[in-house]
Write a protein that binds this DNA or RNA. Sequence first.
DNA 1: TTACAACCTGGAGTCAGCTCCAGGTCAAGG
DNA 2: CCTTGACCTGGAGCTGACTCCAGGTTGTAA
Lengths: 166, 166
Amino acid sequence: MTYSIGQVAEKLSVTVDTLRYYDKAGLLPFVKRNAAGRREFTDNDLHLMRTIMCLKNAGVPVNEIATFVQLRLQGDTSLDERYQLLLAHEQNLKTKILDLQETLAYLQYKKWYYETAVAAGTEAIHFLPGSNEVDPQLARQYQAHLKEIGDLTTLALFNEVIELPK
Amino acid sequence: MTYSIGQVAEKLSVTVDTLRYYDKAGLLPFVKRNAAGRREFTDNDLHLMRTIMCLKNAGVPVNEIATFVQLRLQGDTSLDERYQLLLAHEQNLKTKILDLQETLAYLQYKKWYYETAVAAGTEAIHFLPGSNEVDPQLARQYQAHLKEIGDLTTLALFNEVIELPK
DNA sequence: TTACAACCTGGAGTCAGCTCCAGGTCAAGG
DNA sequence: CCTTGACCTGGAGCTGACTCCAGGTTGTAA
């Protein structure tokens, strides 16, 4: 049982053009052609491609994925090298997720800022009296709010990301 | 107290060129110039820029951030619109984090694949007997492994992301 | 008072990752 | 037989987010 490029594109939710681009870029050297020169993807190919898509989703650049695929072609001698590569990208990805969680914590602070401002009908409630500048201590109110609602996970992330004066 | 573009670049860990690019793109209309035409950033400007950087880190494209900044200039009448924009991007970011967590779960499966292969000295331990194809049922062994070490969080994410035959 | 670093502008260049096109082949349905 | 749609290639074009450059101004420290 084999699949055409169109069927694979469907399965992986990418375009046919993208798959051909990946092939040109050396990501799919294992895909065989039929007599007419058309690509025929096997189930095993799809399995390998899921790993490739995983690396892509993890933010690994195409040329590095190509390196990984090349290593695979070399067989068991490259096992450790491939493992190291995965290990490095696991760390990258963990770091990226943590960064995004901190970004989310800050975004939620701003959301709270606007929730309270919308409720008050004006942003001025967050300004220093008689100015258009945001109270530099405002984050403390939000910290208190997080404590109140018991969201200590967000609080911890927020504390990582904010720096308060004085 | 004001800051030069160089000082701000330092503080925000971006280049001076990037900041000028943001200014051209309409992200920093609030930054004033001194008599010599140089930018002078206030503490309040820095505060606003932290929000901009947050949106940037959240993956919001520059032109959408520019929209947000434009809304801000319109004052309290745009409060709700700004809130809605933040809300939408909070959702995007949450989704993205979840996707990355699933990607991480798959990456860790592959890491386990290579750990065991490296230990065995060959990838063949994961192949169907007498072939070069990965056992389509292999993920079940990994599921069992996750249960064994009690990592139910990763197991749940992994189950989201894998589809097994039969 | 001059050297030099930091700033300014407009605009060109770069890079990754697609995306699209022209021009052609091939298999199946009417 | 003929049309149609999915496939093929090489190569050009596009987009976003910078990044760099030439040519010029400014502020300060020796």
